[in-house]
Design a protein around this nucleic acid. Sequence first.
RNA 1: GGCACCAUGGCGGAGUGGUGACGCAGCGGAUUGCAAAUCCGUGUACCCGAGUUCGAUUCUCGGUGGUGCCU
Length: 303
Amino acid sequence: MKAVVLLAGPTASGKSDLAVQLAKQAGGEVINADALQVYRDLRVISARPTQDDMDGIAHHLFGHIDGGHRYSAGQWLKESSAVILDILARGKLPIVVGGTGLYFKALIEGLAEVPPADTGPANLYLNRHGIAALRELAVTLDPIATARVLGDDPQRLLRIVSVAQETAKPLSVWQSATNPIIPRGYWTASVLLPPRQLLYERINQRFDVMVEQGGILEVEALAARGLASDLPVMRAIGAKTIIAHLKGECALDVGIELAKRDTRRFAKRQMTWFRGQAADWPVIANKADKARFLGQFQESQQR
RNA sequence: GGCACCAUGGCGGAGUGGUGACGCAGCGGAUUGCAAAUCCGUGUACCCGAGUUCGAUUCUCGGUGGUGCCU
């Protein structure tokens, strides 16, 4: 019997609803695998389920992190694996739901256990010598990892350099020793993938609803905290462009349009991710697929 | 009715007698601790007809459409 259910999909694909349905039917609990829904500050804008949506089902790792904190894949992995074990220990079904491909990957393929590496020095180097120089430095420190980075990706180059310098061992070496948290055979996964046009329409409509439900006020409250602008919450889709509006940089409707556009782009990137990493996961594209998905757990329960 | 100006890819917008500016949207891809982030890639477009020319999106004439002004 597969012990853990993984349900991935782009934003606005209806993952949360489906997860709750499954949880009710199969005695499960929901675990968040979405990088932004962990932040307390953004309930509306991050489309985090409401109390109503949760419908009595236990939900874990939602809105439990303060916006001033920089969350990470590593932290998520520690928390989620602990929660999964706990749910299993209580004889219930863990249902991991979200749209962050990296988190799913970490769960089923593992994430290198690298000691904390401060990006500060590498960042300083970048600011002083530019991205081309950073890339050259990365090549000398860790040619293998650098070869995997296309173009000048400061984020990933920074990580390669800082890990090599701070831990005295190249990132690629750390990464070569990774083990899955949940071994193959103990999980079953599906991707929710509605037709693109429909998804885009839903995204557009949903943002309007977010605005109606106080999304702007929520962003105002966040902005009022005066947090660093490079914090994940501050760069959340929606938050980013609404903050620009609040600062008088653009009209409200422009900020809203940009938020919708960013969400569409984001959904596209998510679909690219799942096409690659979750190529062999069954796709749920319509009602019939959903019914089949739910039905499959009914059978295993009866047995 | 007359005169002037304009007509470029889904949109905006340069420009040239012979290698398709550019921006946005869209599309494809990468992704091992910021991942809703970050990065890479991607377009046989020049209103229609005739003419000039070795060659016309670019020049000439006509047509059609649009914009402005005038009577």
